[in-house]
């Protein structure tokens, strides 16, 4: 089965939903759609770069794919930030929808390409890929949220957070493609659970949204 057929199968219902929905529901669907499209395009670009620099499959997966994939997840989001000037509280949800669209398409394509090796490996991979994309999305969105009010932090922080997510993704890919693939899948799962635990244990000095007083309003430009 070609990748494009799979893309049409998965993305077509979302395209229909985009036409039918309004407001935030439509926006979430837009990002899911953008995530799946980004995943498809990132595969093309990764293959192109790999052929251009005569890289083998392993080098393409552990060195080229993380940069290209994170780039395709990040670019639509950057356009959204720069052009639509979204509300701060929307950023995390929108970035998550983008990451989930990306992860869903990647998981299904991997299953079609490599077949299933039993329920547990599939489940571990599904959770691992999902968690990895969500962790990378969280890193960018939560980081940006806290740096939002200062212009220089927002601009330079965006670049820095993007590159950090590339590095995290690269370490994940490196482990997943080795004989220690289970460690690779466990790292984002453990990271995600830790973040959830930290979020649930609120600091006494924070408000109901988890912001410490004055944290996001300090301006040093």
């Amino acid at each position: 089965m070609s990748m494009e057929y799979l893309y049409f199968c998965l993305a077509a219902p979302i395209a229909v939903a985009i036409l039918c929905l309004e407001d935030r529901g439509k926006q979430t669907m837009d990002f899911l759609f953008a995530g799946m499209t980004g995943c498809l395009l990132s595969r093309y670009i990764t293959d192109f770069v790999a052929v251009r620099y005569a890289a083998n499959a392993m080098v393409a997966a552990v060195e080229i794919a993380p940069v290209v994939e994170e780039g395709f997840k990040f670019l639509p989001f950057l356009v959204y930030l720069l052009i639509f000037k979204p509300k701060k509280e929307w950023i995390t949800g929108d970035m998550f929808a983008l990451a989930l669209g990306f992860a869903t398409f990647e998981n299904v394509w991997n299953l079609v390409e490599n077949g299933g090796a039993g329920i547990f490996p599939i489940l571990l991979r599904g959770l691992g890929v999902g968690a990895m994309h969500v962790v990378c999305a969280s890193l960018i969105s939560i980081g940006l949220l806290s740096m939002w009010d200062s212009f220089y932090l927002r601009v330079l922080g965006t670049v820095g957070l993007f590159l950090t997510s590339v590095a995290y993704h690269a370490v994940y890919n490196l482990l997943v493609l080795s004989r220690f693939s289970w460690i690779g899948h466990l790292i984002p799962l453990v990271t995600m659970i830790s973040v959830l635990l930290i979020r649930s244990s609120k600091n006494p000095g924070t408000d109901e949204k988890g912001n410490s007083p004055g944290t996001s309003t300090r301006e040093h430009a």
Binding site: E63, V67, G160, T164
Partner: peptide, 27 residues
């Protein structure tokens, strides 16, 4: 590694150290 993937992670650390210094200076 053949490409600059790990280098990017190191460059990002320079960037965040710079931002931390800038933030702490308040200048």
């Amino acid at each position: 590694p053949r490409f600059i993937t790990p280098d990017m992670a190191w460059y990002v650390s320079y960037l965040f150290l710079f931002l931390a210094l800038q933030y702490l200076s308040g200048e």
